[in-house]
Amino acid sequence: MARNTQRWKHRKRSLRRPQTLGTAPGTLVVDPQSSAMVIRAIGYGPDGLDERILASADDARALLERWPVTWINVDGLGHAEALQQFGKVFGLHPLALEDTVNTHQRAKADDFGDVLFVTSRMVQGPPLLSEQLSLFVGANFVLSFQEDLSGDCLDPIRERIRLGRGRVRTSGPDYLLYEILDAVIDGFFPVVERFGEELDELDSGLTTRQITTRPGQIHRVRSDLLYLRRIVWPHRDMLQMLLRSSHTRVSPETMPYLADCYDHVIQLIDILEVYRETCSDLRDFYYSQLSNRTNDIMRTLTVLSTVFLPMTFVAGVYGMNFEYMPELRWRWGYPFSLVVMGGVGIAFLAFVWRKGWLERWDKPPGGPRDHDHSTTGD
C-alpha cells in the first residue's frame, strides 16, 4: 500500500509546474525532489559500438566525433548546471531545456533549427505511473532525458543496438527517434490491457448474486483511464506534426515508420474511449442493481407487513376489554383466534406466492415451472 501511495504521489508530482511564476523564459528551475543524474551513452555504427557511463556532457565529444550516431540517455533532472552544460555542448535551445525540466509538458514536437525537440510520456501500471521523456535529435545524436531511475521501456532498443538486430545500426538518428517513440507507445498497450482485465473483474462482481463491486473501484478505474486518455491524445498531434513537417532531421525513409506509430496511437485512443464508456455503463448498472435490490427488500417487507395486518386486526378485536363478547367465556376461544390468524396469514402468503411477488428480480430463468410446461407438450 505504501508503494502504491508513493507512485500516486509521483504521478501527481509529474503534472505540476515546479518553476516559480514570473521567472524569465529559459530559466532552469529544477525540482528538489528529482533524482541524481546518471548519464549513459551508446555510440554506434554499422561496424560496432561503444557503450559507457559518462561523468559530464563534455565526455560525449569523443563519441560524437567517432561514431555516426550517438545516443545519450540522462536519468535524473536534479542538476541545473549539468543541464546547461548539455545545452552548450549540443547546441540546445534554452526554451527546450526549460520544457525538459518542467515535466508537466504534453507530447509535442518543436523545430529549433538544427535540433528537433520532441516530448513524450512513458507509463507503467496499474497503479498508474507516468514519466516525461524529452528527446533532442541532431545531425548525429539523440539526447534523451528522463525524470528518475525507476526504469523505462527502452531496454529492447539498447539490446538491438548491442546485437546489431534490425536496421537501427545502419540508420540515422531519426530512425532511433522512431524506435524510441514506438517503444513508448507500445508500452501503453500492456497498461491498457490490465485496465481491461480489471473492468472484466468489476463486471463479474456486478453480475453475481452478491454485489462485490463498489462504486469507488469503478471511479478509480475511470479516473485512471481519463488520465491515460489525456496523455495519449497529444501523441497523435505530435506524430501528425512530425509527418507533416519537412524537418531536415527526419528523412523520407523514416516517414512510413512514423505513420505506423501514428496508427498505434489511434488504436490506443479507440480502446480508451471504449473502456471509458464501459466504466460509465458499469456505474449505471451498479446503481440500477442497487436500486433493484432495494426494491426487492422493500417488496418483501411490504408483503410481510400485509400478511400480519389481518392477524393484527383479529388480535385487536379479541384484545378489547368489553364485558359482553361472544367468545369471551368460550373454552376454545383462544385456540380459535390463533387458528383464524394463522389461516388468514397462510392464505394471504399462498395468494402472494401464486402472483410471483416474492420472486427475486435477478432469479435465473428456467425454473421448475418452465421445465414442467415444456415437457407436457407431448
Rank of each mutant, 00 (worst) to 15 (best):
N73Q: 08
E65A: 13
R61Y: 03
R66I: 06
W71F: 04
E65G: 11
A62H: 12
P94S: 09
L83M: 11
D75H: 15
W67C: 05
E98Y: 15
L95W: 10
D99S: 11
A80D: 07
T100Y: 01
D75N: 14
V69C: 00
G78C: 09
F86V: 09
F90W: 01
H104I: 11
T103E: 05
I72P: 01
D75K: 07
N102Q: 15
G87A: 15
E81Q: 12
N73D: 06
L95V: 12
R106G: 12
L97S: 12
L63Y: 00
E98A: 14
P68M: 03
T70A: 11
R61V: 01
V101W: 02
N73V: 05
H93A: 02
N102P: 00
D75C: 10
W71R: 08
A82L: 15
G78N: 13
V89E: 08
I72C: 05
V101E: 00
N73G: 05
N73S: 08
V101C: 00
L92A: 10
N73A: 05
Q105E: 02
H104A: 15
G91H: 00
A62F: 06
K88Q: 11
L83K: 04
G91V: 06
H104P: 04
L83W: 06
A82D: 14
F90G: 01
Q85E: 12
E98G: 13
L92T: 10
T103P: 06
P94G: 10
E65D: 06
A60I: 00
T70P: 02
D75V: 08
G91Q: 03
V89I: 15
V74A: 11
H104M: 11
R66M: 04
G76L: 09
R106P: 10
F86T: 11
E81R: 14
L77F: 07
L95Q: 12
